[in-house]
Design a protein around this nucleic acid. Structure first.
Length: 154
DNA sequence: CAGTGTTCAGGAT
DNA sequence: ATCCTGAACACTG
């Protein structure tokens, strides 16, 4: 199977994906991915019509080392929930700042939901724009509320 | 080795 | 609320 590249959109931001079958090599915010479409499941996710992207794999989480361990832990954060850098660090047996460093180099945002990792006091950062992080969290909050009419808490 | 990062807690103002 | 400090540490060049 050959590597393909395509572009889609998340609100105001162009999103590009480089992938090969279910293996997502890279996801970035920008339109250098060309004019071909991206995988339909990702398009649906970005539109709030899908909450699960676990069918895809990312090479980054299969490697050895602390960063890969962090990526695997981050992928287990349920849709619509968040964890702090400190919590992820404790789970991975390392320090919060290392989590920040690993997520800053995350080659596949969205697939590895680094936007669900926030600071204890601040929302934390996001490349290229924290507004995207806020928007993603907002999308997940809205989508989850819409989809679970029986789990409202007063 | 030096520099860099999406942190955290504590203290001063 | 904002600013500064020191600690902790994987990864890159």
């Amino acid at each position: 199977m050959a590597m393909r590249e395509g572009s889609g959109r998340f609100g105001l931001w162009p999103v590009s994906v480089a992938w090969d079958g279910v293996c997502i090599h890279r996801v970035w915010f920008g339109r250098s991915g060309g004019r071909d479409p991206i995988p339909q499941e990702i398009t649906e996710f970005l539109a709030g019509r899908r909450t699960d992207l676990s069918l895809f794999s990312s090479p980054a989480e299969e490697a050895d080392g602390v960063s890969a361990r962090i990526y695997r832990i981050v992928r287990e954060i349920p849709y619509g929930e968040t964890r702090t850098y400190g919590e992820i660090g404790a789970s991975a047996g390392t320090h919060a700042r290392v989590v920040g460093g690993a997520l800053a180099r995350n080659p596949t945002p969205i697939i590895i939901p680094c936007h669900r990792v926030v600071g204890k006091r601040e929302i934390g950062g996001f490349t290229p724009d924290t507004a995207i992080k806020k928007e993603l969290l907002d999308l997940e909050a809205r989508t989850r509320r819409k989809g679970s009419l029986n789990s409202r808490k007063s």
